[in-house]
Design a protein around this nucleic acid. Structure first.
Length: 422
RNA sequence: GUGGGCGUAGCUCAGCUGGUGGUAGCUCCUGGUUGUGGUCCAGGCGGUCGUGGGUUCGAGUCCCAUCGCUCACCCCA
């Protein structure tokens, strides 16, 4: 309570139960990616600030005010990564991966950092899983990634997730559309709230996300970007949908779905679990065909998604579907003869080497307390050694289910425990 | 960054219009069973009432500030 140090705001300690659940979630993601031809990579937790500001765009909140920035002793301006996509594109471009068979499909998982107001499901240090396919503009790749993301949720047992998709066209479609949208906003400027007026110049697309009822009414009739995209982009979107339809994936086409990072184009999507409240978005992604050029690379198509592990974990907890922790031990050593402890702890390690999961009392418990502890941790066998057994160089091994007890000599103990384990 | 709610034992929580911190539940430890778990019974450990000020004869209770959690705005994973 009044401890001197507490974790920094927006960070989490991971206690055994939740850490085990998180680990199981990442294992599931790894298995699904492996099975789909995605290879794991890792990138630094910090990068040059410009990598993020150039790709995500200065107008995005993430870059504008949420990045953790610092300068190192070499006066380099660095940022803790707010997301993975830019780093993965940098990795692709900087390691000659454009010469490999395309598309290059990678995934990673790790901590990201954003300085935002802390809320349930929104932390300043949070964990993302991310998968990207770089080097193909095939709509089948967009659909493959959406399917991959949904397969993860399904594997975790998460129910009730909702997929929304949209197309926001190509870069060339953006400015003409934004001009149309601004003209519409200007025509209704007295009916929308201040926030929309403030965003009018820099990020007018955000107007679609408004929660203000009057503004929502106005935006319902606003020109939608999907109606102002190139024919090629429309065809691409139709193809993506056909790949989703053939898989039987449920989705809603949401013409107002706009994502917050500037590099997106064409397909965008979001997956939500609505009961999570304000932070209901558990993952999202999209295509980013212009991203490579923004960091000095050749034109390279790409598509990918990220999903927030903490949010998915919260959803699983709410649904009572936390991955079970692998508890239980095979044997507990209850040693009442102090003189026997060194030799028996050595035997205990030999048993561990043989694959028997075991522990001994380390709290100075009395006999009853040690038995209770053996029961509490779910030990299948309890190895008892008191003065009598020590003198005879045997242990009394108690089967905790049947209650049967047998003497086992020290030199046969490991073998006995291995056999008892089955 | 802006509002609302909440901070009492390791956990879950009582505590009324200010008047001695709870035989509270769970957990933990010990004993009943001189060396044997799960059930039961008994006992025990455990609190600067988030923190710092203020009002008052007296503050867990009222006021201010601060930190944390939480809900919403915002943003997004």
């Amino acid at each position: 309570m009044s401890d001197e140090f507490i974790p920094p705001r927006g960070t989490l300690d991971w206690l055994p139960a939740r850490q085990a659940a998180r680990h199981a979630m990442l294992d599931a993601f790894r298995a699904i990616c492996d099975g789909s031809g995605y290879s794991e990579v890792a990138t630094p937790v910090f990068e040059e600030k410009a990598l993020f500001s150039r790709t995500a765009g200065e107008s995005s909140e993430v870059v504008g005010k949420e990045m953790y920035l610092f300068e190192d002793q070499g006066e380099r301006v660095l940022a803790l990564r707010p997301e993975f996509t830019a780093s993965l594109m940098r990795l692709y471009l900087g390691n000659g991966m454009s010469r490999e068979a395309q598309p290059v499909r990678v995934w990673c998982a790790g901590s990201c950092y954003r300085y935002a107001a802390v809320q349930r499901g929104r932390y300043r240090e949070f964990t993302q899983v991310d998968a990207e396919a770089i080097g193909s503009d095939d709509p089948a790749v967009d659909a493959e990634l959406i399917a991959l993301q949904l397969r993860w949720y399904a594997a975790l047992g998460l129910e009730g997730v909702e997929l929304r998709i949209n197309t926001i066209g190509d870069k060339g479609d953006r400015e003409p559309y934004l001009a149309v949208l601004r003209a519409y906003l200007d025509a209704h400027i007295d009916q929308v709230d201040d926030e929309i007026r403030r965003q009018r110049d820099l990020n007018p697309l955000r107007a679609f996300d408004t929660k203000d009822p009057a503004s929502q009414k106005v935006m319902a009739d606003a020109p939608k970007i999907a109606d102002h995209v190139s024919e090629a982009a429309q065809e691409h979107f139709a193809a993506v949908r056909s790949f989703l339809d053939a898989r039987g994936i449920d989705y809603t086409v949401d013409p107002t779905l706009v994502r917050g990072l500037d590099y997106y184009c064409r397909t965008t999507w979001e997956v939500a679990w609505p009961e999570l409240g304000a932070q209901s978005g558990i993952g999202g992604g999209g295509r980013y065909d212009g991203l490579a050029e923004s960091i000095g690379g050749p034109a390279t198509p790409g598509v990918g998604f990220a999903s927030g592990v903490e949010r998915v974990l919260l959803a699983l907890e709410d649904q009572g579907r936390l991955p079970a922790t692998t508890g239980g031990v095979d044997a507990f050593f209850a040693i009442f003869a102090d003189a026997a402890r060194p030799e028996l702890h050595a035997l205990l390690d030999q048993a561990r080497d043989a694959g028997v999961r075991c522990e001994a009392d380390l709290a100075g418990r009395a006999v009853k307390g040690q038995m209770k502890q053996a029961d509490r941790i779910g030990a299948a066998q309890t190895v008892v050694c008191g003065d009598d057994e020590w003198a005879r160089r045997v242990c009394l091994v108690r089967d905790m289910t049947s209650g049967e007890q047998v003497d086992v000599p020290f030199d046969g103990l490991v073998e006995f425990l291995v056999n008892a384990k089955g």
